[in-house]
Simulated scan of single mutants.
Amino acid sequence: MSETQAPTTSTETSSVVENLDKHEDFVEPDAKKRKISKPADDKTHKLEDRLGGILCCAVCLDLPRAAVYQCSNGHLMCAGCFTHILADARLRDETATCPSCRVEISKTSATRNLAVENAVSELPSECQFCNKKFPRNSLERHEESECEERISRCKFDRIGCPWRGPAHERSAHENECVHPHRSGAEIMETLKAYDQKLLEERKLYDSIFDLLGYEKISFNDVQLKPYRTDGFVHRLFYESSRFTAFSNQWVIKAGITNNQKDPTQCSERDISYQVIGK
């Protein structure tokens, strides 16, 4: 059986066309709007990001803050990561290698890259207080003494004022601070705590001067040799040969990161010394 369609009238055709026109006017491709609304300095921002990615440390992937070292193939490492790589190799009793190309590195073979250091110092960085961008070589001075949003203390903090706030609010607070008008008895409590802290520091210095004031002082040139434990996790320690002091035999022993279960999996390094009487 054949089906028949009802002929469309001119009125229905015109209404469909009008609806399509309205729909086409209403819909706008999102891509075109995003392209038109791009900021003018987008390329500059991308260039800074690209430079940051090129000049960053190969280990921590962050821009170096001070010295920049490189291996013989030119891969960059910040001073902190370079020191950790040498310490880790020493901890494992192995040869230190570049994390990118595995070429051998040491204090004598690695060199500083002054051009990269100067380039990184000119890249902009954001202030942690006001969020404005400054060249890295002037950011520290800005955060310490110039930024109006940096955290500052009240000048009456020695007599107990706990106020901490932005630098631009310091003058207004000090004009209204109540601590200068406190009674002597109230201020004495704060000064006692302050004097107690100074007394503890004084005791430390006095003990050092007492040691230097002994009549008998022995000087020895001691050389520490590396050794390794035989456990499942090999730990590195150093021990000196026996030496004579104050009519007794002594040995100095130094442990590396003894507070860690596996020192090879930690980036922290600390050395504890023991003077053992034999």
Rank of each mutant, 00 (worst) to 15 (best):
T95P: 02
I85V: 10
L91E: 15
V103H: 04
A110Y: 03
T111Y: 12
T97K: 08
R92A: 13
T95V: 08
A79R: 10
S109C: 07
R102L: 11
K107I: 06
P99F: 09
P99R: 09
E94V: 14
A87E: 13
S109A: 07
T111G: 02
T97P: 07
P99T: 01
L91C: 14
R90H: 14
A79L: 08
A89R: 11
L114E: 10
V103Y: 06
E104P: 08
L91K: 15
R92L: 13
C81I: 03
I105P: 01
I105W: 01
F82H: 06
A96H: 08
I85L: 09
C81M: 03
I85C: 08
D88P: 03
R92T: 12
A87I: 06
P99C: 04
K107Q: 03
V103N: 06
F82Y: 11
M77C: 03
S106F: 12
C98N: 10
T83S: 14
R112T: 03
A115L: 05
N113V: 00
R112M: 02
C81S: 01
C78P: 04
R90D: 11
A110D: 03
E94T: 14
N113T: 01
H84T: 13
M77Y: 06
L91W: 15
S106I: 11
S100F: 06
L114P: 04
A89T: 04
D88C: 04
C98G: 08
A89M: 10
C81D: 11
T95M: 02
D93P: 05
F82G: 01
T95G: 13
P99H: 05
R112G: 00
T83V: 05
M77N: 04
V103Q: 07
A96E: 01
E104A: 12
E94N: 07
S100T: 15
R90N: 13
A87F: 15
H84R: 15
A89S: 07
T97S: 11
